[in-house]
Structure formats: structure tokens, C-alpha cells
């Protein structure tokens, strides 16, 4: 028997679930959905947190279940897993654009982030796109944001932290 739901279909449903802290960014674009599996009537989803202590994880998990149920999935399961740990390069190009429109600098991309936190010192200002900026604090109002200051715009801004 063919599976009643296709993987693509499920991903398009999941587009509806947004990061509660950044309502323009879907969980799919955030990169926290790491696996979708359909076996007969049953849908199994693996998610991974951006930060281990992310307080919104339970809420996001519930919203994923709700969306599946609303689309007629009777047997759905969501598992939190660290098999494919999240890092900021998992944010899609569409997600990066959404962050910028929201006024948050997207995380700098690159493979050397773990060893080179100097990138924090010159984050790109989401207003003027300039790099004439300085780090104010690696800790912001939520776990995934740092605080910066643009010396040209003379205004503070936040960046989605590279991880």
C-alpha cells in the first residue's frame, strides 16, 4: 500500500509552524526539522533544538503535532534528537532573508565558526549592510541572539548567533 502522505506534503505543512521568537521564520527554514518518516498511517518527525536550553522547544513540538493532526494525521510522533546537532549553517537562504527583513542580522556562514568567534566583532548591520560595527554582548534577550552596535547608523542591533 502506498503511503497516504508524501514527505514533500509534510514539509509544506510544517512551513506553517514558525519560531515563536521570530514569527517570520518557519521551523523548516530554521533547520530544526532533521527527519520526516512516513510508515503507513504513521508520521514520525525528528527535531533538534537550536540551543539545548531553548525554552520554546516544547511549544514548537506541540505545534508540529497540532499541524499534523489538523491535516488528518492520526498517528504522529515527534522526537527530540541530537543525532544531527543544529548549527547556524542549517538556516536556509530563505530563512536568512526572513531574519534580515525581521531586523535581525543573519548568522555569518562558514565552517570555521566553532574556532573563530572573532566574526562576532564585525557583524553585518541589517540596516545599512555595513561591517563598521562592534560587539556589545555575546548574550542577548534570547539564547540565540547577540547584541551589536552599528557605528554608522549609531544604533544597536541583534544578530542570530553563529553556532
Amino acid at each position: 500500500m502506498a503511503n497516504p502522505y508524501s514527505i514533500d506534503q509534510i514539509y509544506s505543512w510544517l512551513e506553517e509552524v514558525k519560531d515563536p521568537e521570530i514569527p517570520v521564520l518557519s521551523l523548516v527554514d530554521l533547520g530544526v526539522i532533521t527527519r520526516v518518516e512516513v510508515t503507513g498511517e504513521e508520521v514520525k518527525i525528528e527535531m533538534t533544538p537550536t540551543f539545548v536550553g531553548c525554552p520554546a522547544m516544547d511549544l514548537m513540538k506541540q505545534e508540529v503535532l497540532d499541524v499534523l493532526n489538523n491535516n488528518g494525521v492520526k498517528k504522529a510522533e515527534v522526537i527530540i534528537s541530537f543525532k544531527e546537532p543544529w548549527n547556524s549553517d542549517k538556516i536556509s537562504e530563505k530563512g536568512r532573508q526572513a531574519l534580515k527583513q525581521f531586523g535581525l542580522a543573519p548568522p555569518p556562514s562558514g565552517k570555521n565558526l566553532f574556532t573563530d568567534l572573532d566574526v562576532l566583532e564585525h557583524a553585518q548591520c541589517p540596516r545599512c549592510n555595513g561591517n563598521h560595527t562592534e560587539l556589545r554582548s555575546p548574550f542577548g534577550p534570547t539564547l540565540c541572539r547577540s547584541i551589536h552596535y552599528c557605528l554608522d547608523c549609531r544604533e544597536a542591533f541583534e544578530q542570530f548567533k553563529p553556532l
Partner: peptide, 20 residues
């Protein structure tokens, strides 16, 4: 204020990590 936020954020990280 920045230090206040820093220690609160690190607290949230550490407690979350202990739970994992």
C-alpha cells in the same frame, strides 16, 4: 545590565544542558 543578561543566559544554557 549586560552582565545581568549574560549570567541569566548562561544559567538558562547550563540548566538546559543538565536536563539533556
Amino acid at each position: 545590565l549586560e552582565e545581568d543578561i549574560a549570567f541569566s543566559s548562561m544559567a538558562q544554557d547550563k540548566i538546559g544542558q543538565s536536563y539533556a
